[in-house]
Design a binder for these strands. Structure first.
Length: 359
DNA sequence: AAAATTTGACCTAG
DNA sequence: CTAGGTCAAATTTT
């Protein structure tokens, strides 16, 4: 994974810078446009910052081939502007708590790795019928649908298409709002670690795959922990400020990019069609974090980890974001937010604490 | 044929 | 037990 990484990084670097410029331009336009909301601007700002952060990251990492994610992360700082909680509906919720159960037998202590699992909730409503889809530039594969108690519409579950090939454990859930069917609540969990080489050809399936079935799990060797450096920059991408929705985490989206919708959800119920936009990956770095952030990580892969991947990733703060456009927000159950973290287990090295910085 | 979706069964936390 | 989440076989789509 490093052979090509070099040129790759350079490209990424350039791409990030370019992206930053483009975003800045968009921001400028946004400032002139009366229609643009402050939220959009906010996102643009975040993206711009994110691009630069990535660029810095790349520069640093190129210096030292190996990863250095942690430091990098701390170096990047970010101001947190934004009114604390202007948005009323900031109900983000996170809940997740998984444990391994079946694993106990053998691997009881091994996975102490920190896998961060975050939830990002966004709401998208298409008031007038058409709106941008919230594509994230990722490909998702639907793996389930469930009727939720009290909800009129079923919830759909998606996971990254590259789960198996690249150990990407990102998932998302899509739920249509009861009262306002035009609104969808999308919850993203996990981070994308898939890096399909953006350069040109997606690399073949990664080496260590997991294929073991559900009988035994073993730790897979670590995936490359380089994810930080890989972002594909959309060269031709332009973000539309129209209504951008975004989310993301500084990770790189799979190269799928713009035109291709990652979404394969043809689904029944959702918006397979109602939107069309082209804003894709956004960034989601969000400022308003409470001081306590930083602490949300925890190991324990998703529910049933049969293949345990120990990803050590950079943690990113969790945040939930809501871009909602409208009113209806009543139907969101407000779960409790609990933070099951066991700090004790963490590595002392971990240094993320800085509260205010971008993810 | 391969990849994605559908859908009921299965699993687990609360 | 129930509700929510995931698996996986069957089915559909590409």
């Amino acid at each position: 994974m490093d052979t090509a990484s070099k040129s790759w990084e350079q490209k990424s670097l350039v791409g990030e810078i370019i992206q930053g410029m483009e975003l800045a331009q968009q921001l400028r336009l946004s400032l002139n446009a009366t229609s643009a909301s402050s939220e959009n601007r906010e996102f643009l700002v975040q993206r711009i910052l994110s691009s630069y952060e990535k660029a810095l990251l790349l520069l640093q990492s190129s210096g030292s081939p190996q990863t250095s994610h942690v430091d990098i992360k701390s170096t990047v700082i970010q101001e947190s502007r934004m009114s604390a909680n202007t948005s009323p509906c900031g109900d983000d919720y996170k809940h997740m708590s998984f444990n391994d159960h079946q694993d106990l037998q053998e691997i009881s202590k091994k996975r102490k790795s920190i896998a961060k699992w975050t939830d990002h909730v966004i709401r998208i409503s298409s008031e007038n019928g058409i709106e941008g889809p919230h594509e994230d530039g990722q490909s998702w594969r639907k793996y389930g649908q469930k009727d939720i108690l009290g909800a009129k519409y079923p919830r759909s579950y998606y996971r990254c298409t590259f789960r198996n090939t690249q150990n990407c454990w990102a998932t998302k859930q899509v739920q249509r709002s009861d009262q306002d069917p035009t609104t969808f609540e999308i919850t993203y969990k996990g981070k994308h670690t898939c890096s399909t080489g953006s350069n040109s050809v997606p690399p073949p399936p990664s080496p260590e795959q997991v294929e073991q079935k559900r009988h035994k799990r073993e730790n897979i060797s670590e995936p490359q922990q380089s994810q930080v450096g890989q972002m594909s920059f959309p060269i031709n991408l332009r973000v539309d400020t129209e209504n951008l929705e975004d989310r993301d985490m500084m990770e790189s989206p799979c190269p799928i990019t713009s035109t291709s919708f990652g979404c394969t959800m043809s689904g029944d119920d959702f918006l397979s069609s109602m939107f069309d936009n082209n804003s894709f990956f956004g960034n989601f770095s969000q400022p308003m974090l409470s001081p306590v952030t930083g602490t949300d990580y925890y190991l324990a892969p998703p529910s049933q980890m049969r293949n345990v991947a120990v990803n050590e990733q950079i943690s990113e703060s969790d945040l939930t974001e809501i871009i909602s456009a409208t009113n209806s927000s009543t139907n969101s159950p407000i779960p409790d937010m609990d933070f099951p973290l066991d700090l004790g287990e963490l590595d002392p090295n971990f240094q993320f604490d800085t509260p205010g910085f971008f993810l």
